[in-house]
Write a protein that binds this DNA or RNA. Structure first.
Length: 531
DNA sequence: TTGTGTTTTATTGCCTCC
DNA sequence: GGAGGCAATAAAACACAA
């Protein structure tokens, strides 16, 4: 079976690379036995994607693979290992570090039982689900500067540290490469940009590693016995939370009026009224970015900000909709159905953002996840022929567009080679769209859903908050509504951040330029594909 | 520079579900 | 049997101390 699967993978690999196996490829196959590190951008994209969807659909994998220049096999493997990594860490913390699991860990239990964190059972996805719920609420969102400050504190809690590691470790290492090892002035710019955005500042080796956890202000008072809900609120407040600000009592003080709504309704202003990070009062780099005569950049930055705000503040809501792996475990068919439905109605009301981002070159890349995101099977089952007909590159087929290939590849010497910003932009959009259409995450397998979804309903076991879904369409509506209200999600923003450096590269040509010479990348992909 | 430990990637086998 | 996932394993890449 495995050999069969391997064969399948190989076939898929070659198909994805748009080539059948040739003598040359056989050579590359041998070469590819040598494992190849994924580029920082690839890792970032994967991580961001992983934050939102630990079990991506095949279509998503395919799209992501195309977009980041990997094979589906690599994508699948990466996700598999990534989940394993999470799981092992969970086990590690569950087995040896429970003594640290107090305080913030309770935050994970906002509305949940604390013992849900302490009784982590190996292999029990439900526990991981809870973490993921919190992970998405707390870490899965764009780590704003203020959030970062808080998150650094959270390191006192190994569990939170784990959570952060889970969500950003690779990114951290990625950015260590990007920043600490940067030799290119552009990389420095990258660092600046990313730092100013706050989202990645934490992973700046100089800042993150030097920041130790020192409870202060509110945390100092409340210590680790604070109401987990308060912690959750603080996190949701994100940058707006101020240590020296009004103390949030165990019983909630009223949130600043319109604290959320304003940003939601004025995403652009949200960036300009950035007040949460005293160290970066004005984030000059943001201005630097905005100065860039690329509308994409502006949108990206704003989107990032907006998404950060929204995601931070609405993380709970998101989780309610799709943050839990409970939903991931929903039946494959159901989820695919959702995917198709969501695809059919891609984020109304927020298209403008992407429309403005979309260049003429943004075509197959996005290739509209909403379309290509559907497997051919699903398409046949659920979609009209138009969806398929418009699908530029069928899933599993030849890479839709060579231009889309390998734009995230590094060159050989690991110097971060900024791809064309447009490419990144497209990827961001792609990912975003994919996430949009995904809606609730797909479960790891139908068998889990079978347990949790008896009789068309699904509920949690073991006393976790039970959410009975009686009408799948309702959830779809909710998902769509939420997606509309909070269109950008963290991984998109991160992708945007990842893009920022590229935008500063004056030598890369216009954003509309599509990499014309992917020989290097294509070679890399070809070689990796045959692995 | 080298040795060692860790992390990441790739492969393979097995399991479960459809 | 196909498909997808988890787990184990090997090996390369990386980090770091001596």
């Amino acid at each position: 079976m495995s050999s069969v699967k391997s064969c399948k993978y190989f076939q898929q690999t070659y198909l994805n690379s748009g080539e059948m196996q040739t003598e040359e490829n056989k050579v590359s196959l041998d070469v590819n036995k040598k494992r190849m590190l994924k580029t920082p951008a690839q890792i970032m994209a994967l991580e961001n994607f992983y934050k939102e969807n630990r079990f991506p659909l095949d279509e998503m994998k395919a799209q992501l693979a195309v977009q980041i220049g990997l094979t589906e096999k690599q994508i699948s493997s990466w996700f598999c290992h990534r989940r394993l990594k999470d799981k092992r860490r969970d086990e590690s913390y569950a087995n040896g570090r429970q003594d640290h699991s107090s305080g913030v860990i309770q935050d994970h239990g906002s509305g949940l039982r604390q013992d849900s964190c302490g009784s982590i059972k190996q292999g029990d996805y439900r526990h991981i689900d809870l973490r993921e719920v919190e992970s998405r609420r707390i870490y899965g969102q764009e780590p704003l500067a203020a959030d970062l400050t808080y998150e650094h504190r959270s390191h006192q809690n190994p569990y939170d540290a784990h959570m952060e590691d889970t969500s950003s470790e690779s990114s951290s290492s990625l950015h260590d490469q990007l920043f600490s090892e940067s030799r290119d002035p552009y990389d420095m710019q990258v660092s600046d940009k990313l730092t100013e955005n706050g989202a990645l500042m934490q992973i700046n080796p100089g800042s993150s590693k030097s920041v130790g956890y020192k409870p202060s202000g509110y945390l100092k008072v409340k210590g680790q016995i604070e109401n987990p809900a308060i912690t959750a609120v603080k996190k949701q407040l994100g940058r707006h939370y101020q240590e020296d600000g009004p103390v949030l009592g165990i019983e909630f003080d009223a949130l600043p009026p319109g604290a959320f709504e304003f940003l939601r309704s004025n995403p652009v202003n949200a960036a300009s009224i950035y007040v949460g990070d005293p160290q970066q009062p004005h984030s000059p780099d943001i201005y630097g970015v905005i100065k860039q005569p690329n509308l994409n950049i502006i949108n990206e930055v704003h989107n990032s900000k907006m998404s950060s705000q929204d995601s931070c503040m609405e993380g709970t809501k998101f989780n309610t909709v799709h943050g839990s792996e409970r939903q991931e475990r929903k039946s494959h068919h159901q989820l695919k159905y959702k995917s198709s439905v969501l695809c059919s109605n891609p984020f109304p009301g927020q298209n403008s953002l992407f429309d403005s981002n979309k260049g003429s070159s943004e075509k197959t890349a996005v290739s509209d996840c909403k379309r290509s995101g559907m497997s051919s099977k699903l398409s046949v089952e659920r979609m009209g022929s138009d969806s398929l007909s418009n699908h530029p590159g069928s899933y599993g087929g030849k890479i839709a567009n060579e231009q889309e290939k390998s734009w995230l590849h590094d060159n050989d010497n690991h110097t971060y080679k900024a791809p064309k910003n447009e490419n990144l932009s497209r990827t961001s959009n792609l990912i975003h769209r994919c996430s949009e259409f995904i809606g609730p995450e797909r479960g790891p397998s139908a068998r889990m859903a079978k347990v949790e979804k008896p009789g068309g309903e699904w509920k949690l076991k073991k006393g976790f908050p039970v959410r009975v879904k009686t009408d799948p369409t309702n959830e779809l509506r909710v998902a769509k509504r939420v997606n509309v209200e909070f269109p950008l999600q963290d991984f998109v923003a991160n992708a945007s951040h990842a893009r920022l450096p590229l935008l500063t590269n004056p030598t890369k040509g216009s954003s509309m330029d599509v990499p014309s010479s992917f020989s290097e990348d294509e070679t890399a992909e070809t070689s990796s594909s045959s692995g």
